[in-house]
Design a protein around this nucleic acid. Structure first.
Lengths: 188, 188
DNA sequence: AATTAATGACTGACTGGACAATCATTTAAG
DNA sequence: CTTAAATGATTGTCCAGTCAGTCATTAATT
């Protein structure tokens, strides 16, 4: 009976926040985010209760999008190494193709107003990656370490590789492959 | 002829800032830092021109301290692997022994008011580590990648290991060794 | 079909609080 | 007695979140 909520604005705000935070950091003002999103600063608060709420939703959104890009087209009827390489490439490709999303996500990863709940939701999106890593490494030299540790190491190598790909884009593909080989030697 | 500057206060402020920033993040107020350091908020600005200046000095101080702890007692008359393991252990041991310093340093590492100059000063403190890594990896599978890339990967694996050691302190030593072995397989 | 009532989204000026940095005084050292 | 450090109250700025008024949409009534 009343004016319905826009289904455009929430996603416009999410997109605007991604851009503004990528360039200004997490201290970007809600006013700046609203302006970039083409929305009044008042409206921002009809779709997101607080700034922290916006940051949490943004975090889950970006992480989910990353996970989907990473897992796209994955089938388990192939060689394990081939599957792992595909996931790896798609992961790093997403990160370097959307530098603003990747930078904002990196900032949110170390922010303290991301709740444990949001982190849990986000990590659920990565379940398939975890499973694949387990299959890949279950007979390797790290078989006796916690899977979480192996995941953490893989993440560390991937992040380092991404950073270097961004820093030296001309040879991005070479670095991507070299990063995968390093991960594989380490794990399998 | 005038009242001399205290040689205690600057270091007290550095130490206080480390503690407050570890617990409150980089947005900790200068007033809170001054209070924690036992100094009036006015005095903080007689020793550090601006908050950014304080953060830069703090960054260089912590990074230098970390480098010194990492390199302590290193001699090049031994087996390369032994040297590398020693450096690795001392690095990770420092990081887990001083969680506040490590957390504050981690925050400063991604802050945008750390100048390029500070980063350069800090990285100069790590020259010996770079040299050692080069000797360790110059005949390994990554010999054709940029040394900076190898350094970035080593850093990634070390950070991941540190995080996991902090997360599961009971088995810290095991994780430290497992991390080193992973690094070694990857690099050598 | 035309009119009106009800609802809640939209807007941007505004508020209250927090913070970095300053400054007038006071204190201590040479 | 001179100089500069020490102090904490103060200042100007910025920002998250609020709010009173406006406007778009739908449902009910004629």
């Amino acid at each position: 009976m009343a004016r319905p909520r826009s289904d455009i604005k929430p996603s416009a705000i999410i997109a605007g926040a991604t851009r503004v935070i990528a360039s200004q950091g997490l201290s970007a003002s809600t006013a700046a985010i609203a302006k970039e999103s083409g929305v009044s600063n008042g409206s921002l608060f009809t779709y997101f209760e607080t700034k922290a709420d916006l940051l949490n939703k943004l975090y889950v959104e970006l992480k989910t999008e990353m996970a989907e890009a990473t897992l796209e087209g994955l089938t388990d009827d192939r060689d394990l190494r081939e599957q792992a390489l595909r996931v790896w490439s798609q992961w790093l490709n997403w990160a370097t193709s959307y530098p603003e999303k990747r930078r904002t996500l990196a900032l949110l990863n170390v922010s303290d107003d991301i709740t444990a709940e949001s982190q849990q939701t986000a990590s659920r999106a990565m379940t398939e990656v975890r499973k694949l890593l387990n299959r890949v490494s279950e007979n390797g030299p790290m078989r006796d370490t916690p899977l979480e540790f192996r995941l953490s190491l893989m993440n560390g190598v991937a992040e380092a590789t991404i950073q270097f790909m961004i820093h030296d884009p001309a040879d991005a593909d070479t670095h991507c492959t070299a990063g995968f080989e390093a991960f594989w030697r380490m794990t399998v």
